[in-house]
C-alpha cells in the first residue's frame, strides 16, 4: 500500500484587477477500496467558503467565488493518500460471452453515458482501423490492452503541442499530444467497439520509474471489463493502472473532470501556472511545485478573450 504526499498548486495572475470570479474545483480524490485520503489541506487566496457536493459521476466538486477586485488566485492543495493496486482481471470467460454481456448492458445506467461517441470527421477512419484489428476474437480486456498500446505506439507525446481547445480531429491528424489527448483517443476507440470507457483525471506517482505525467495533473482511461469492473489503462505510459495513480475525478471526457475552472470579469488577460510535486515513502521528492510551476498553453483565441465584458474560461490542461 504505497503512500504519497502530493502538493498541487494552481496560480492565476492578472495584469489589472479582475472581479466577479466564480470557480469550480475537482481536487478531492475519490475514496474507495483502492484509494484512501489521510489528509487534505486546501488553501485558496482570500480563504473563500468552499461548498462541496457530489456530481452525477460521483465526484466531489468544490465551488467558491470572489466578487472583490483581485490580482491573483492561488489554489494550493496538499494531500496524503494511500493507494492499493487491484488484481488483474481473471479474464477466464469466453470472449463471446463477455462481448454479449457488454451488449446487454449498453443501454443501462451508468454504462450508457460512457458509450456515447463524440463525432468528428475522422471517426470513419478510426472505425476502419479498429475493424482491421479483428478485436472481436479477443476478450474485452485484451482489446483494452491492445488499443492502449495502439495509442501509445502511434501517437507522439509532445508537451505544448495541443491546448484544452484542441479538437479530437486535430489531435488525430497531428498524431501527437499530451495525456489528455491520449485519453480522449482511447475513449473513442473503446467506445467504438462497445466497451464503456470513462475519462479519469488525477496524479501519477511513478517515483523513479520514469513514467510520463509527473509535475502536472495526469489523465487516463477506465474501461468496463465484464465480470470484473472498471480497470484503468494509461495510454500515455502504455500500462495498466496499478497503485501508482491517484484518481481525482471520472467523467465522460475532460470537460466533466477539469481539476480547476473558473470565470471572471475584467479587461485583463491572465497567466496560468500549474505545478504538482509528489513525495514518496522512501524520502524521494519530485521537485517542489514552485520549481515546476509551468505556464499553461494559451487557448487559440486568447487574444479575443481579452475584450471587455467578456467572460473568460480558465481551464488548465492535463499532461
Amino acid at each position: 500500500m504505497p503512500k504519497f504526499k502530493i502538493h498541487h498548486v494552481t496560480r492565476y495572475n492578472y495584469e489589472t484587477p479582475v472581479r466577479d470570479s466564480a470557480n469550480q474545483i475537482l481536487l478531492f480524490p475519490i475514496q474507495d477500496d483502492f484509494q484512501q485520503v489521510l489528509k487534505q489541506d486546501l488553501h485558496i487566496t482570500g480563504e473563500p467558503m468552499v461548498d462541496i457536493y457530489k456530481d452525477f459521476y460521483g465526484n466531489e466538486v468544490g465551488s467558491f467565488m470572489n466578487a472583490e477586485p483581485h490580482l491573483e488566485l492561488v489554489i494550493d492543495s496538499k494531500l496524503e493518500v494511500i493507494t492499493r493496486g487491484n488484481h488483474e482481471p481473471a479474464d477466464d470467460q469466453p470472449a463471446e460471452i463477455q462481448w454479449a454481456e457488454l451488449h446487454k448492458i449498453r443501454s443501462q445506467f451508468p454504462y450508457i453515458d460512457f458509450l456515447k461517441q463524440e463525432q468528428f470527421s475522422s471517426l470513419g477512419e478510426v472505425t476502419r482501423i479498429i475493424g482491421e484489428m479483428d478485436l472481436r476474437s479477443l476478450t474485452p480486456y485484451q482489446t483494452g490492452k491492445k488499443l492502449n498500446d495502439y495509442i501509445f505506439t502511434h501517437f507522439q507525446y509532445i508537451k505544448g503541442i495541443t491546448s484544452v481547445e484542441t479538437t479530437l480531429e486535430e489531435v488525430w491528424n497531428l498524431k501527437a499530444g499530451v495525456c489528455q489527448d491520449f485519453a480522449h483517443l482511447l475513449l473513442v476507440m473503446l467506445r467504438k467497439i462497445e466497451i464503456p470507457a470513462r475519462y479519469v483525471s488525477g496524479y501519477v506517482c511513478p517515483n523513479k520509474s520514469g513514467m510520463r505525467g509527473e509535475g502536472a495533473t495526469h489523465a487516463w482511461v477506465e474501461a468496463y471489463i465484464p465480470f470484473y469492473g472498471w480497470l484503468g489503462f494509461d495510454p500515455t505510459n502504455n500500462c495498466n493502472v496499478n497503485g501508482m495513480h491517484v484518481r481525482l475525478a471520472v467523467g465522460r471526457s475532460f470537460s466533466n473532470c477539469s481539476p480547476v475552472k473558473g470565470t471572471y470579469k475584467g479587461t485583463s488577460s491572465h497567466t496560468l501556472e500549474v505545478g504538482v510535486s509528489v513525495s514518496y515513502e522512501d524520502g524521494r521528492t519530485s521537485e517542489e511545485p514552485s520549481a515546476v510551476l509551468a505556464a499553461q498553453p494559451k487557448n487559440a483565441n486568447g487574444e479575443q478573450e481579452n475584450s471587455y465584458r467578456r467572460y473568460m474560461e480558465m481551464i488548465q490542461q492535463q499532461q
Partner: peptide, 11 residues
C-alpha cells in the same frame, strides 16, 4: 462563452 448568464448561479 455565454454572456447572458451568471457564473456560479447553479451553485
Amino acid at each position: 462563452s455565454s454572456m447572458l448568464g451568471v457564473s456560479g448561479i447553479m451553485n
